[in-house]
């Protein structure tokens, strides 16, 4: 009688979000699907102190790209810029093309595999918005590695089993 699994809705440890996949972070240290956007940070190729903050809105497919000091990106063309393209490519590595396309409501072909395919499907248009909220999400992200580990038990993490042996 115990062999039957309860439906997903009735399980305490149901998996809701698939874990991210590891990727190289040198060029795009941060990317996320959050706040209704694909958003993240791209390191500048020429200035080690500078990063670009790029985002693409799921609701209307407008995109934004500026430096962390709020200067506009000089490379903006129809359909995006190099930073947005790098961001889309890394998002696909991290989450898989299906999840990125679904989040952005992008109608991609079944055999699409790349960030470029997602961007081609949405026909992004430029609309400057504030980069600061995305940059502050990035700083928050970096702050996790500054927090100290602990050997006190965190019993609530029983709700969050590490997975990945079956995909």
């Amino acid at each position: 009688m115990n062999a039957a699994q309860k439906p997903w809705e009735e399980r305490s440890a149901a998996r809701v979000v698939a874990p991210a996949r590891p990727r190289k972070l040198a060029k795009v240290p941060f990317v996320e699907l959050a706040d209704g956007r694909l958003q993240g940070v791209v390191s500048s190729g020429s200035d080690i102190e500078r990063v670009y903050v790029s985002s693409l809105t799921a609701a209307n497919h407008s995109f934004h790209c500026s430096t962390n000091n709020n200067r506009p990106c000089g490379g903006i063309r129809t359909g995006g810029c190099n930073h947005l393209r790098a961001l889309a490519d890394e998002a696909v590595l991290q989450y898989g093309v299906a999840r990125v396309a679904r989040y952005l409501r992008a109608d991609v072909a079944d055999d699409a595999t790349t960030g470029a395919a997602v961007l081609a499907a949405v026909n992004a248009w430029h609309e400057p918005s504030a980069g600061a909220p995305v940059f502050s999400r990035f700083l928050r992200h970096l702050a996790y590695l500054e927090l100290s580990p602990t050997t006190e038990p965190l019993p609530e993490l029983h709700w969050f089993p590490a997975g990945g042996a079956v995909r």
Partner: peptide, 10 residues
Amino acid sequence: VSAPKVDTLV
């Protein structure tokens, strides 16, 4: 033993 981390460390 537990530690804060980021999502790409898996």
